[in-house]
Structure formats: structure tokens, C-alpha cells
Design a protein around this nucleic acid. Structure first.
Length: 275
DNA sequence: TCCCAGGGTGTGG
DNA sequence: CCACACCATGGG
């Protein structure tokens, strides 16, 4: 069990802010699934509590070694009211350090899709192709192995709701399985070079690449721009650019290594109606 | 029925 | 380089 101050760790906001898709309400909090692991997470008073069978893994997963007070302080020096309001309201969000492969495949699913459907597709992929597991008396399914996804038929993949993304998932799983894509070797690349490498994968454009560098590789100098962020840029930054790649580059340049955190605070704030 | 969703690819200019 | 049709699917 892990106990942690809840000032910068709010499970509801961290899970619902759109960075992750495998979790469900459970008792006083949530059950969170990643790869083949599970954790029961809840806030109680000023304490955040994580019960799992692999505390080391979840300590890293929830990014517990990072000083979020420093990030919030740094953002509060930016002199932009909308940015500061978002960050201070949702300072309980942490950027999860997700598994690279799970993040990459999950955000391929996310393209031109909405969050409830992304969740349901990934759940169905897991229940169809993943190993059945059990934690705290609850059944769940592990994220599918590369072997399972690479060997799946398009028919079975589409039955999970993937639509035209089925071929992206299968082809990417095959490349990962065969070692044609070595994500761990890409850790040493600069973020610019890393994005360039990810863009070579069919099904990954600038937005998904930014999600993978941020949520899978922990690169703060990423700013995924989707329809919501484009709206924020237009309405809350009074921006005039229309090309999403240029908008992303502009915002990364503005917030540097904290860009990804700003992105997530504001994305959630916009969706929650705060902005 | 059309529009939208954490967009991307392929083609034609 | 840019514009635009098209890509499955389900909810509003």
C-alpha cells in the first residue's frame, strides 16, 4: 500500500482528464488497470491511497517522485489567467507514466473518436484478446499482448469497434513484435527526433505522436492539439493559427518542459466547463 | 439526417 | 506546399 499527500494527487481528476482509458469506479475510488496489473486507488481526507500487488510499479506509474508543487509554481509565473486558473483548480492531476506500447496503441484507437468509445473499444480488445486476471475479488483483463494483436484477424479486431483503425493496430503490433519498432531504444532521442520517428508509423499523425511522447515517454515538451485544444487556443489564447501542428509547436515553445502539464490542466478545464 | 469525437491518409493541384 | 474526400462507429 502507498500513502501520499493528496494535494497533487487526485484520482478522479487524474483518471478522467483524458490521458488514460482503463479504469472503473470501485468502492470509494477507482480500479486502475495497466498492462497486466491492477490497483485500487482512492482519496480519503488529505491522503491518496493506492492498494496494489506491485507498489514499485505504481509509484512510478503515478509519477510520485516528481515535484508537482514546483510545476504549479512555475506555471503560476506565466501571467496568463486562464492557464493559472486551470492549473490551480486541477493541480491534483498527474501525468501518468504509462507503458509505451499500451499508450501508443491506445492513442491510435483515439483518432477521430470520443473518450467513452475509446474506453469501450480498449476494454473489448482486452476482454477479447487479453489474459483474464483477478484482484481484490474483481475480475479484469490484461492489455492484449503483441502476439495476440498481431495474430488477430481483421474481423475479430473490427468486432471490438475499431473500424478502419483495425489495420493500424494490427500492422503496428506486428512491427513491434518483429522488432522493427524498438520503443525503448527511442528513449535516447530528442523529443523532436522521437516525434519524427513516431510519425513514420501508419495511423500516427502529429496529435497522436504528441500523446505518445507525453503519456508514454514522459516528455513534458509535448502539446497534443485536438479539437478541444484548438478551441482553447482560439478562445482563450486569442490565437489565429489554424494548422494544428503549428499550434502545437507554438504552445510547446511557450511553455517549454511544462507544456504537457499545461495542456492536460487546460484540456480538462475546458471539458469541465471551467473555461 | 447530419454533426461530432483527444485525426490521419491518400490524392490532386 | 495546401485543400479536400474519405475513412468506421455510435451518440446526440
Amino acid at each position: 500500500m502507498i500513502k501520499f499527500d493528496s494535494t497533487y494527487l487526485n484520482f478522479k481528476d487524474t483518471l478522467f482528464c483524458g490521458q488514460v482509458f482503463r479504469f472503473k469506479p470501485y468502492k470509494n475510488g477507482f480500479m486502475v488497470f495497466t498492462l497486466d496489473k491492477a490497483a485500487y486507488c482512492y482519496n480519503e481526507g488529505n491522503t491518496a491511497i493506492i492498494e496494489s500487488d506491485d507498489d514499485n510499479y505504481f509509484h512510478n506509474y503515478f509519477d510520485l517522485s516528481r515535484d508537482y508543487a514546483q510545476i504549479i509554481d512555475s506555471i503560476n509565473a506565466c501571467n496568463n489567467e486562464k492557464v493559472m486558473l486551470s492549473a490551480n483548480t486541477y493541480k491534483g492531476i498527474r501525468i501518468l507514466k504509462q507503458d509505451k506500447i499500451e499508450a501508443l496503441l491506445s492513442f491510435i484507437v483515439s483518432q477521430n473518436n470520443n473518450i467513452p468509445r475509446i474506453k469501450s473499444i480498449i476494454e473489448k480488445l482486452s476482454s477479447t484478446f487479453g489474459e483474464k486476471k483477478r484482484f481484490l475479488g474483481e475480475d479484469y483483463f490484461a492489455f492484449p499482448t503483441l502476439q495476440a494483436l498481431a495474430g488477430a484477424s481483421y474481423e475479430d479486431l473490427k468486432a471490438c469497434g475499431l473500424g478502419y483503425r483495425a489495420e493500424y493496430i494490427k500492422e503496428t503490433a506486428q512491427k513491434l513484435l518483429l522488432g522493427e519498432l524498438l520503443l525503448d531504444d527511442m528513449d535516447k532521442l530528442s523529443t523532436t527526433e522521437l516525434k519524427k520517428s513516431l510519425l513514420k508509423i501508419k495511423g500516427i499523425g502529429d496529435k497522436v505522436a504528441n500523446c505518445v511522447t507525453l503519456f508514454g515517454f514522459g516528455r513534458g515538451d509535448s502539446f497534443p492539439v485536438d479539437t478541444w485544444i484548438e478551441k482553447i487556443y482560439r478562445e482563450d489564447f486569442n490565437g489565429t493559427l489554424t494548422d494544428r501542428t503549428k499550434i502545437s509547436n507554438y504552445l510547446v515553445d511557450l511553455f517549454k518542459e511544462n507544456a504537457g502539464f499545461v495542456q492536460q490542466y487546460m484540456f480538462y478545464a475546458k471539458r469541465e466547463g471551467l473555461l
